[in-house]
Computed example of a mutant assay.
Amino acid sequence: MATPRPPAQALFRRLFVINGLVYAVGTLVLAVSPATVSSPVVLAEVPVLVVGLTLMLAANGLLLRRSLEPLDALTTLMKRVDLLRTGDRLAGSGNSDLAHLIDTFNAMLDRLEAERSASSAHALAAQEGERQRIARELHDEIGQSLTVVLLGLKRVVDRAPSGLKDELRDVQESVRASLDEVRQVARRLRPGVLEDLGLHAALSALSSDLSQRSGTRVTRAIDPDLPDLGTDVELVLYRIAQESLTNIARHAAATRAELSLTTDGRRLALRITDNGRGGVSREGAGIRGMRERALLVGARLVIDSPPGEGTCVRLVVPDIVNRSLHP
């Protein structure tokens, strides 16, 4: 099997052959045509030379442009490529010399996306582990310490003189509010409801939490017959829904939101919309984290946010049949 020529050598050979053919055809035409050139050149022969040179340059330019046209498409792909938006590839062309270059570039993108996905998986796994550790410490240490403080305050309130009872009750309520906040933070860090009750209950809890925190009315439409998706897919769906709802509470200034999770038997679609201000033009760390999580399960994430028309986050997980068969 012959070893393929290096792209630079192959391109040089193609250009050399094209130019040689153009000059050979031009020479042949001049040789068989009745046109002659005197020495020195007379004025009447100048138009013949100009026309011949123009035709040769035009033919040469046309052939070279068609040969190098794939390079323009390759340059455009290089400018727009983003490893968080997978599948952007350049189709091979009839130009066999540049087809090798295009195939090599596509293979490089495949390797980079695979490496990015693997490194993201390790990073996100470490992040989840750290979240669980912090959640346990908040619940087991800080939560228990605040509980002990509450019990001690209750005994003090019972024994305190009437003039101090009101102030001590205020302190008691502040500690109780702090304990509730610690528990909420722990729940957000470690989705215990996802582990204990499943994805449907976890998404419902997220929606209720948003309504309580921001007053945004959340409508839910969750398919009751979801297949067994596996821990990884469920965690990705939960985290992306959590980040989307958190963004609504913090930035959207929305009064209504909708969360839906539906399946057509082959694909699973998570959709979160709101009627807020929209206009998300710059993707911060939160959205990039959502894209990285989507890559882990081969899902496609689309965010549509026209100014003044709210935001729509849509995540599509393909091939859920095989996922449910092989969790």
Rank of each mutant, 00 (worst) to 15 (best):
P4Y: 03
P7N: 02
P7G: 01
A8C: 04
Q9L: 15
A10T: 11
R14K: 14
V25T: 05
V25S: 05
L28T: 12
V29C: 12
S39R: 13
S39D: 13
L43N: 11
E45C: 10
M56E: 09
G61D: 07
L64H: 01
L64V: 05
R65A: 11
R65W: 11
L71G: 04
D72M: 09
L74M: 12
L83D: 07
D88I: 07
D88N: 10
A91W: 06
S93G: 13
L98Q: 02
A99E: 00
F105P: 02
A107N: 10
M108T: 13
A114K: 05
A114M: 00
R116A: 03
A123I: 06
L124P: 04
A125E: 13
E128G: 08
E130Y: 04
Q132I: 03
R136K: 05
R136E: 00
R136P: 00
E137K: 06
H139C: 02
E141L: 10
L146F: 12
K154Y: 09
K154T: 12
R155F: 09
S162W: 11
K165G: 06
E173G: 07
V175R: 03
E181N: 13
V185M: 11
V193T: 14
L197G: 12
G198M: 02
L199W: 03
H200C: 11
A202C: 05
A202I: 04
A205M: 15
S207L: 03
Q212P: 04
S214T: 14
T216N: 01
P227Y: 09
L229D: 06
G230T: 00
D232T: 12
L237W: 00
A241F: 04
I248A: 03
A254D: 01
R256C: 08
S260K: 00
T263K: 05
R267I: 05
R267A: 10
I272R: 08
N275H: 12
N275V: 10
R277P: 05
G278Y: 05
G279S: 14
R282K: 02
R288I: 13
G289S: 11
E292I: 04
R293T: 03
R314L: 09
V316P: 08
H326L: 14
H326T: 14
H326A: 14
